[in-house]
Amino acid sequence: MQDIVKKIAIVDYQLGNLYSVEQAFKHLGVEAVVTNDKDIIANADALVLPGVGAFADAMENMKKLDLVAPVKDFVATGKAFMGVCLGLQILFTESEEFGSSKGLGIVDGQIRKFSNNLPDNSNAKVPQIAWNRLLEQQIAWKDTPLKELPEGGFQYFVHSYYAVPEDQNVILSTTRYEGFEYCSSIIKKNIFACQFHPEKSGEQGLSIYKNWIQKI
């Protein structure tokens, strides 16, 4: 990775798995800065929006720290952007978590609760805390950050909500939870976002960060 000198910023909105995302870049020998400084974000070559926690808290913190516009502006520049877990969810229009909360509205669609939408006869446990498989859809993985994953490869998931994109063509992978199939990652122009945690998914997970960086 020594030939890559890119500025990667990880958005610090005071929630989530900042530390482990930062570690993933360290493992790859790439410097990434954890920040909520608007100038650093604007000048970065690539931006990561991490996240663990509640949707409404995340949006509230984004607003409180005045990060909504900087993140949206960054995505609009076309530079590489990656969302992880809650960082995928808040890209969407809105969530049904605790009533209804508005998201960043960068990707059209809804965030829905597993427990409201799983089949009635399902005994699925929520949150899903598990290593689960990624299934390839219309978009071939070979030119995406998932390119080193085998079809059906395992990634680590921890979540109670899932994304329903309006445009099916952005779905990069799906995952089945107790027979229920949902979108587990998306790719849309410069946006790559995943519901699972590549930074907690061993070597295959790290390969996702590595291949994402290489496209920057």
């Binding site: 530390y19 482990s20 570690q23 993933a24 360290k26 493992h27 680590y156 921890v158 945690h197 930074e199 907690k200 998914s201 061993g202 070597e203 997970g205 790290l206």
Partner: peptide, 8 residues
């Protein structure tokens, strides 16, 4: 430990 491992 967090630095040394890449699993939860």
């Amino acid at each position: 430990v967090a630095l040394a491992i890449d699993i939860p």
